[in-house]
């Protein structure tokens, strides 16, 4: 699930990351990245956070009907899929479309979960256009303090 551990939310790294992706695109330096990584601008954008007890995935998917969203876990792969309706009608004599940048149509993102993720304990919420999925870690894998007698 970790594309790179050297990823910090700062501009410098964002820029280096972009350059790395572009260079890979032109067959230049090939630094390793996740096999499921997709190009910049994929919909929905995903952030993954980690705590000792859970893995948290935020998918930035505005304007979606949560009932039409499909979230599944199969053999350690979390899949977020759905479809986004268009707000832009057909262009006609009386209607001009100047910009059509927002994602439209079916989408799918796949995230590989770490081994200690428990597929039985998953919760998903949709708020302000963000799907938040919390996958609990198995208790046996959680850090434990061992008493010395």
């Amino acid at each position: 699930m970790y594309e790179s551990l050297l990823r910090f939310p700062t501009d410098l790294f964002a820029e280096l990351d972009r350059m790395q992706r572009e260079m890979q695109g032109f067959g230049g330096l090939s630094l390793p990245s996740s096999i499921r990584a997709v190009g910049r601008g994929a919909f929905p954008a995903i952030n993954i956070g980690s705590t000792p007890t859970a893995i948290r995935i935020d998918a930035f998917a505005p304007g979606i009907d949560p009932a039409k969203l499909s979230i599944s876990i199969d053999r350690g792969l979390l899949t977020i899929a759905g479809e986004r309706a268009s707000d832009v009608p057909e262009e006609s004599e009386k209607l001009s479309v100047y910009a059509h940048e927002r994602a439209v149509g079916p989408f799918k993102r796949v995230v590989s979960l770490p081994e200690d993720a428990d597929p039985a304990r998953v919760a998903a919420t949709y708020r302000d256009g963000v799907v938040t999925i919390a996958v609990q870690r198995r208790e046996s894998a959680q850090p434990r303090r061992i008493e010395v007698k």
Partner: peptide, 18 residues
């Protein structure tokens, strides 16, 4: 963007970085 994250969260992978 104000996405609440529980305390002790470390970002492992981010596409929305700003």
């Amino acid at each position: 963007i104000a996405v609440e994250t529980p305390e002790g969260t470390t970002l492992a992978y981010t596409e929305v970085q700003t």
